[in-house]
Design a binder for these strands. Structure first.
Lengths: 327, 327
DNA sequence: GTAATAGTGTCTTTCAGACAGTATGAC
DNA sequence: GTCATACTGTCTGAAAGACACTATTAC
């Protein structure tokens, strides 16, 4: 039942969504190509040089950007034909493996090579930031067009075999229409819906029928090369989910921080506003942090500084900040 | 910042953990090699024949076993050197992508090719079945040896750079020693711990120093070829986790079923006993099922039959059976 | 004093976990 | 009736979600 054969040259590509948070802006390391297009840092995997995928990833990131990554997590492997290259161009087939990585240094932008920079991730996903309430782009731009798309029953029929849900159902699932809830973890589902509806730039670039013109598409977030925006969407959703059951936020925080700064960071990532009191209680009851003893001196009342309690890693089964509907 | 090069021929292998539940036994499709060793169904990916990885997976499974898969989910991509082949044998480097698949038919064993069969998954992980209370193998075989391993501070030092947790800490984390909780989702962590401690057969086979002899190692579950048991551990952990927030159990159930049968299936997978009343309330409040109207005729009081309510897919944000400590 | 930010105290609702019971069939 | 399995009613305590209030600094 085991068989093996080689037919097409295959290349393994590694793409990394490297996240840092500065103040209340989550940032993503973006590599700009010669053509001026944005993409994720990308490198190919050579099994002779590196023993594992993760080692290779850390190496090429350090090599290209000088960043030493902390937390690294594999996301997903894509091998869809037609990715990257045009069909029949004789190029090797690319299988790309997406990674999420967290780092503390978003600041030293001047130490990065010229082609690389940290960019606010909501530039690529403007509809994902609900900290200031329901974003106007959802109601003004997205939902009207998606509703029109969902009303196209002809197009729907064509995809019926592949999709268990109807267009209206998917719309409700992704965007919580009809007063349904907004689930901030469904970043990838929403991006894919917008892609299929032809609203994002990449849909037109990939030659999808029904795609809107490139200029209008720019309103639906900055595009990225290849499927890098899709990988970023996967990373955002994964990070938003992971926050709740693993203490990964602390990978993004400095060694000591105020509780407000911690809350701002969680809010920045999850794209939602949290209740201050509930958040503090949550942090307290989970015993994820301990006071350092010192305090800040900013304007207003000075805040106590805290540090992450590494002990929780062994104490509790699944420590994280289980922020609920509004925290 | 983007670069590309090809140096070593690379082969993409797909390995599938195909799960079915029969009564209260979770089963896994096992392919037996000519040598009589167990492994997962395995095929290689040819980008010319198949457009996506998932399509290729479905095709080779259908081809080899005749099974048509329902739910399919990608797990993880491994590319560790030294996997599969001996070093320097000139063979292509193998990157293998693990998949979890669920299917309803565990029964038609006679239609499977001779080399394939469904096997109870607890044969490979005897310490993971806690339905009858704490398994004796944990206390009698595993913990004594792991405690001895954790007491070896010399060995510990060698791995200190790689591992943030000490051996004792990892032991507590994985097995909930010191009256800590048992987390049924940590299947992979436990397997990797046993591997590193040299207790499982694969550790000796891979030439790990400190591994116990092959005969004793058989007590720690049946081994599998390559890293297939590791992939199976990943699949089990993922499925146990997924049960709680997505309605995946129903992929394993017949079209109509009793609530008791549903509970047995959940228990079989999660390896824990659940409270009947709480389980029923859970199912009721989540509105995941609806009565079909008919009832069973077994001995004892006849049970009402239910079917999965497909509507929940669009109604609630993350429907699943959030079974808690004891359900 | 005012502006600004930090940090409680406590109420209500929901829901997980557990108790012990009653119902309906085959024999 | 007995045996076996299906099903339910309700208590308890722990959190989630929300309310409004007090505290400490700079100016």
């Amino acid at each position: 039942m085991n068989e093996r054969q080689i037919e097409t040259p295959i290349e393994i590509g590694l793409a990394a969504a490297i996240v840092a948070v500065e103040g209340d802006t989550p940032q993503i390391l973006v590599a700009r190509s010669e053509g001026g297009d944005d993409g994720l840092p990308y490198g190919s995997f050579d099994p002779l040089s590196h023993r594992t995928l993760e080692i290779a990833l850390r190496a090429f990131v350090a090599d290209q950007s000088g960043l030493s990554l902390g937390y690294v997590e594999q996301l997903y492997t894509f091998a869809d034909r037609g990715r990257h290259a045009r069909p029949n161009d004789g190029a090797p087939h690319v299988v790309s493996i997406g990674y999420l990585a967290l780092t503390r240094v978003a600041l030293k932008t001047d130490e990065l090579p010229k082609s690389a920079s940290f960019q606010p991730w909501y530039r690529f996903f403007p509809w994902e930031d609900w900290r200031g309430g329901r974003p106007s782009i959802v109601d003004r731009e997205i939902l009207p067009r998606l509703n029109a798309w969902a009303a196209d029953t002809e197009g729907e029929k064509a995809e019926a075999r592949l999709r268990p849900l109807s267009r209206v159902e998917r719309l409700r699932f992704c965007f919580g229409t009809d007063s349904g809830p907004w689930d901030e973890e469904k970043v990838l589902d929403r991006y894919e819906l917008l892609y299929e509806a032809g609203l994002v730039f990449e849909a037109g670039r990939d030659g999808r029928s029904g795609a809107i013109d490139a200029a209008s598409a720019r309103r639906f977030g900055e595009p990225m090369l290849h499927d890098h925006r899709r990988i970023l969407a996967t990373a955002m959703g994964r990070l938003r989910a992971k926050l709740k059951y693993r203490p990964v936020v602390f990978e993004l925080m400095p060694p000591s921080f105020t509780l407000t700064a911690l809350q701002r960071t969680v809010e920045a990532i999850s794209g939602r506003h949290l209740h201050k009191q509930n958040f503090r209680r949550l942090v307290e009851t989970t015993a994820l942090v301990e006071p350092t003893g010192s305090r800040t001196t900013t304007r207003g009342r000075p805040a106590a500084l805290f540090r992450f309690r590494r002990d929780v890693l062994q104490e509790r089964p699944a420590p994280g900040l289980r922020v609920g509907k509004r925290g």
